[in-house]
Amino acid sequence: MKAWLQLLGGLIVWAVHFAGVYLIASLADIAPPQARGPYGPVLVVLTLACVAVAVVLAIRAWRGTRDGEPVDRFRARLAALGSAVAAVAIVWQSAPALAGFD
């Protein structure tokens, strides 16, 4: 299980962020106008936290690409690039939502 979590960690963080943004956008849609203030900051915090986790996962995985058995290096490479791409994708999908809350 640990091996699969390492392999898919970045993508799982991306999925968590996506679900979070969707939830925040949906809650903001049904909240009364005067209660929508916190949603923008919550989205910013969620985004920063997810980017941070994805970057940490990418760095940790990248360190594993240098040594170990071929299968371990293969997994580490996948995890490192997957997490790095996830970090970019998190920023990318947050942008329209952040603009929408302005």
């Binding site: 996506f18 943004v21 969707y22 956008a25 949906s26 903001a28 849609d29 990318w92 999908q93 942008a95 329209p96 939502a97 603009a99 929408g100 809350f101």
Partner: peptide
Amino acid sequence: PGVSIGLFSAA
């Protein structure tokens, strides 16, 4: 909602 549309468009 516009925010959701932006999210899905980006993805």
